[in-house]
Nucleic acid binder design. Structure first.
Length: 538
RNA sequence: GCGCCCGUAGCUCAGCUGGAUAGAGUAACCGGCUUCGAACCGGUUGGUCGGGAGUUCGAAUCUCUCCGGGCGCGCCA
């Protein structure tokens, strides 16, 4: 139909010519012209049998390909600020990134997984100060906690550790701590100026060394918690890249220098700027502030330069959708450096909007109001959480009903798929109990006996798996895998209810057992990509 | 105000590189267990694909515009 236009003929006539030109094949029973110009191929049964042989032969590797062979990808994901525990919003990026990484490996890419740790900058100062103020409270000081401080309970935990290990060694009177600090918002002041004043006093009173110790106590505790959380969620990393290391290694300076050499930087009002508008950004961006401190953007430039210099063919960043406005300026950096901007692919993951008791929940690390990823995992289990997250297209806004997730976990299609797997395992257990035996490797299996419609449907679905994986990987769309597995499980359950596998006819029995064992294999392979277990019973 | 993302069945979502009567789950109703696990299966009901215009032989899919929702527009990160 596409060609017809170019050839100036109508689609049906062209289709007839094409059909006439197609050579005969044993695998094709007949070819038909249909509708506005479709060509339908009716396959001979033997064509479907190929897939069973392929799955038996390839086993765990069925679905693998070498499309990306020799190509290296760096995938950076989650990278949440280490200022508090991961919440359910981060879980989506974690599940998406982990699944995408596995998918890309499945189609042959070499993938390195990386977490960028923002352990420098103002957020860290606010964290350290928040901890110290809670510590002072534990020392018996009476004080009003700043509006802009981190108010979560985990801050108390860190403060308690600090107090236990150091007693009152870092105590200062509330008067001196709040000396010359501008009023907080509730008192009619500016909350930003208020917290900045407290930070300045903390640094002055504690001295650089102790201040750093307070900060690191918090950073280590929180980052350690994040690592453990992700690990338990089956989300792994090859590298935890520290923002601080950019300064220590000179990479920050190096990144700025490289950008300077392109001639797209300039100085204005005592600051160093990047003329990102040369490359389509909305406005120019500051690299080095008037006070000499580099911006977060400067660090990020250095980080991306570093990534590029490590020799990757492709960089993938997974960010929360709230950072979408940041994409043009990072792309502008690549353009300025003469790199192809397509080399960096930023995947924006939309927020999960949480509902509890039918009401929308607002989450904020700062205010301490959030549902943690850990709570969710403990409530619904890792498998259900992983599957639920990755069932939705990443750029789709997602409604997450916590009550539903907790109370009726059977709503999650993951159980439907796992059940199919467990059911097949159960059939093989039954087989043993009934004193039958089955060897998948026997060479006298006769798949011509698989003549039922349900069996053909199953074989067709199974044969689509490798192509599905390829598409899901290359389009960065892991959600296709979940939907496919649901369809496969549905084909199986339908088959199961319609026919008996363990029959007295050994030939039919063996053929059917071979078929369902390939179904089990594909379910296992697919769930494995999603980071979900394939239980033998449930 | 400008920019990006989203809008498909009562609800939660697929389908979007243009193709045949728009699909699942769930909810509602009907039916199926003496037989390999009923956490299952079959069926019925349910849709102006947000509205409008355009391109095309053909539009949920591409373009424009409007409406509705989310997010972003710092010498914060």
């Amino acid at each position: 139909m596409v060609l017809a236009k170019q050839l100036g003929t109508n689609p049906r006539q062209l289709a007839e010519k094409i059909i006439a030109a197609i050579p005969e094949s044993e695998l094709v029973k007949k070819i038909e012209l249909a509708g506005p110009g479709f060509i339908n191929f009716f396959m001979a049964p033997a064509a479907y049998h190929e897939v069973i042989h392929a799955i038996i032969k390839q086993g765990d590797n069925y679905g693998y390909s070498e499309t990306g062979k020799g190509k290296k990808i760096l995938l950076e994901y989650v990278s949440a600020n280490p200022t508090g525990p991961l919440h359910v919003g981060h879980g989506r990026g974690a599940a998406y990134g982990a699944t995408l990484a596995t998918l890309l490996e499945t189609v042959g890419y070499q993938v390195d997984r990386e977490y960028y740790v923002n352990d420098a900058g103002r957020q860290m100062d606010i964290l350290a100060t928040s901890i110290w103020l809670r510590y002072l409270d534990l020392c018996g000081e009476k004080l009003t906690f700043p509006t802009n401080g981190y108010q979560g309970d985990y801050i108390w935990d860190v403060a308690a550790t600090l107090h236990r290990d150091n007693k009152t060694a870092y105590q200062h009177s509330t008067d001196t701590v709040f000396q010359a600090v501008p009023d907080d918002e509730p008192a009619g002041g500016d909350k930003e100026k208020h917290i900045d004043g407290l930070i300045a006093n903390a640094k002055k009173l504690l001295g650089a060394e102790i201040y750093r110790k307070v900060l690191d106590t918090g950073l280590d505790a929180i980052l350690g918690d994040i690592r453990k959380d992700l690990q338990e969620f089956g989300v792994i990393y090859d590298e935890w890249f520290r923002e601080r290391s950019l300064v220590d290694s000179g990479a920050l300076k190096h990144g700025i220098e490289r950008l300077k050499k392109t001639g797209h930087t300039f100085e204005k009002a005592g600051a160093l700027w990047f003329r990102s508008t040369d490359f389509g950004d909305e406005k120019d961006r500051v690299l080095i502030r008037e006070n000499g401190a580099p911006t977060y953007f400067a660090s990020d430039i250095a980080y991306h330069v570093n990534k590029l210099e490590r020799g990757y063919d492709q960089l993938i960043d997974i960010w929360g959708a709230d950072h979408h406005g940041y994409v043009p300026r990072v792309k502008a950096v690549l353009a300025a450096l003469g790199e192809a901007t397509e080399k960096l692919d930023v995947a924006l993951v939309q927020f999960a909007v949480l509902y509890q008791n039918g009401k929308k929940m607002q989450m904020s690390t700062r205010s301490g109001e959030f549902v943690t990823l850990r709570e969710l995992r403990h409530e619904v289990g890792n498998d259900a959480a992983r599957f639920f997250y990755v069932m939705r297209k990443s750029e789709q806004h997602m409604d997450f009903d916590l009550d539903l997730a907790k109370s009726q976990s059977n709503e999650n299609p993951v159980y439907y798929i796992q059940y199919a797997h467990a059911r097949i395992c159960s059939v093989f257990r039954q087989l043993k109990e009934k004193q039958f035996s089955f060897d998948i490797k026997q060479n006298n299996l006769d798949f011509n006996l698989l003549s039922e419609d349900h069996e053909r449907d199953l074989m067709v679905t199974l044969s689509k798996y490798p192509e599905l994986i390829e598409n899901a990987a290359l389009n960065h769309d892991p959600h296709h895998v979940g939907h496919y597995l649901r369809d496969l499980a549905n084909d199986f359950h339908t088959y199961y209810n319609a026919h008996t596998f363990i029959t007295d006819d050994a030939k039919i029995r063996d053929a059917r057992l071979a078929l369902i064992s390939t179904v089990r294999q594909v379910i296992k392979n697919g769930l494995s990509i999603l980071g979900v277990s394939a239980p033998e019973s449930m």
